[in-house]
Design a protein around this nucleic acid. Structure first.
Length: 476
RNA sequence: UCCUCCUUAGCUCAGUUGGUUAGAGCGGUUGACUGUUAAUCAAUAGGUCCUUGGUUCGAGUCCAAGAGGAGGAGCCA
């Protein structure tokens, strides 16, 4: 079917050329103006109909949500709300949308309500913008790494090891519940299962990415990951996407440089290529905050915030410095923190938020954490107490990136695994990477949805993935 | 998993110290309208007050349990 997309029409000089458009009706005003959107852009095309030229029954079915084809002449608009419009000569209805039943009517809907209408919510301006930007970020990720000589490595979705330590896992099995063969001690005999062993959905592609980096030099993974944690927050999903670059001959400083350059590139890409979508999301937030108290409002608008992040260096501090800053902070001295600040304990959300939002007012990278609160594969520093781990903290979201220089020395890795009770047999192949041609290397994981959350300015991670998977929720 | 709050019309919400026939705006429907911008105007329909049990002469309102949702915490990305 031949059609012209509204995106290209809106940037075309109107010369009474005949064009055909197809899309979904947003509104039909004054028995004369069809507001049409086809998803190619956030902006709509106004289709002008002269009701004397069309069948009354046909016009009667032009309702919000119905889908049509319109052919006519593109002209300069007489109205002030748009530059061009289509004078309709032929009109065809693809699919009606009974207004008495269709849930998305021309009015404000709450995000919670639209979450229950996930199959339709992409037709709204807000979610249209969110998912166009989500696409843009995904594309920019591949472009960034490809342009710099990285290889896209596909890590497995089903994994055989459960020693990655990144959270509760979803089991993968072909056994029917209650019909699984048992061992003599009553445990399930996975030797008879599909893979001949217990398997799970991946929680991270990092270990496999390390194998890739130690052959291809620079790799990244970008795929879905799964966590069966019972997390009910605006920042967690049971199924989410993660980007994990892994680079040979990289130390922790190289790793921080990459992380900062990478996220700035993503933000710049969206600023440069999706200004209309960002503007609508920006306005939406301002509208929302109009009735809020000044102290509850965001310090800057969305686009302003994004520009600020790309124009400023991220603050880089060590964990030890962070602890000192926190212990000398006003909220600490006044006893405002709910959790204690003590070297050796992990930073709590309230502490991270103080550093990012109050102390530095910009993204912060914290490095060199105590070894006991970090994963087994992170490289031990000279001091013997800390590891070369880094977290990138963003305002409003917290941890967006977690990464480290990996322990490439076999004896150190074995010692850590023993301390943390991680069975060597499970990770024999990971250990062999250290036995044969081991090199210093580093990498990190970026939570894709958290990045989309930050760039779109949305408040809930369930609103930046098309069909969210959270505890007690897997509709659609 | 823990804490707090919420659940009344399609949506967003009001509903007084427990009291007789549960309201508004938006949306819908019907009609009018050939330059509207969330069009406007007129008329009109629409309710298992989340579920179950309890207290009471009487429960949308009070109590208990359950279900669902939201926010925060923990865990993390």
């Amino acid at each position: 079917m031949k059609r012209t997309e509204i995106k290209s029409l809106l940037s075309t000089a109107p010369e009474e050329q005949t064009v055909t458009v197809m899309g979904w009706v947003r509104n039909f005003r004054s028995n004369r103006f069809i507001i049409l959107n086809d998803g190619s852009t956030i902006n709509d095309l106004q289709v002008v109909v002269d009701f004397e030229n069309f069948d009354e029954n046909l016009l009667h079915q032009i309702k919000t949500g119905s889908s049509i084809k319109a052919t006519g002449k593109l002209v300069a608009s007489q109205g002030s709300g748009q530059a061009v419009e289509l004078i309709c000569e032929e009109l065809h209805l693809f699919g009606a949308a009974d207004a008495s039943e269709y849930k998305l009517q021309p009015k404000q809907h709450s995000l919670e309500f639209l979450r229950e209408q996930a199959h339709f919510r992409m037709r709204t301006k807000t979610f249209g913008a969110v998912f166009r930007i989500r696409h843009a970020i995904a594309y920019a990720i591949h472009k960034y790494y490809n342009d710099r000589g990285y290889y896209y490595l596909h890590a497995p979705i089903i994994t055989g090891s459960d020693a990655e330590g990144a959270g509760e896992m979803f089991h993968v099995t072909t056994f029917e519940p209650n019909e699984a063969p048992l061992n003599e001690d009553g445990s399930i005999n996975y030797k008879e299962d599909f893979f001949g062993k217990a398997t799970n959905l991946t929680v991270s592609g990092q270990l496999q990415a390390e194998a890739g980096a130690l052959a291809l030099g620079k790799v990244y993974t970008f795929g879905p990951t799964f966590r069966a944690e019972n997390s009910n927050t605006t920042r967690h999903l049971a199924e989410f996407w993660m980007i994990e670059p892994e680079v040979a001959f990289f130390d922790i400083t190289d790793n921080m440089d990459l992380a900062e350059d990478f996220v700035k590139y993503l933000i710049n890409y969206v600023l440069d290529n999706y200004p209309d979508d960002l503007a609508v999301l920006d306005q939406r937030i301002q509208q929302l905050e109009k009735n809020m108290k000044t102290e509850d409002r965001r310090p800057m608008g969305l686009i302003e915030t994004l520009r600020f992040v790309v124009d400023n260096e991220f603050e880089r501090i060590t964990y030890t410095e962070a602890i000192n800053i926190l212990r000398n902070s006003k909220p600490y001295k006044k006893g405002k923190f709910q959790y204690d600040v003590e070297w050796g304990k992990d930073l709590q959300s309230e502490h991270e938020r103080y550093l990012v939002e109050k102390k530095f007012s910009k993204p912060v990278i914290v490095v060199d954490y105590p070894k006991d609160i970090k994963a087994f594969y992170m490289r031990l520093n000279e001091d013997g107490k800390t590891v070369a781990a880094m977290d990138v903290l963003f305002p409003g979201i917290g941890e967006v990136i977690g990464g480290s220089q990996r322990e490439e020395r076999l004896e150190n890795l074995l010692a850590r695994m023993e301390e943390m009770d991680i069975p060597e047999e499970e990770l024999w192949w990971y250990l062999e990477l250290r036995k044969f041609g081991s090199v210093p290397h580093a990498g990190f994981g970026l939570g894709f949805e958290r990045m989309v959350l930050f760039i779109t300015g949305m408040g809930n991670i369930r609103d930046v993935i098309p069909f969210p998977r959270t505890p007690k929720s897997a509709e659609f």
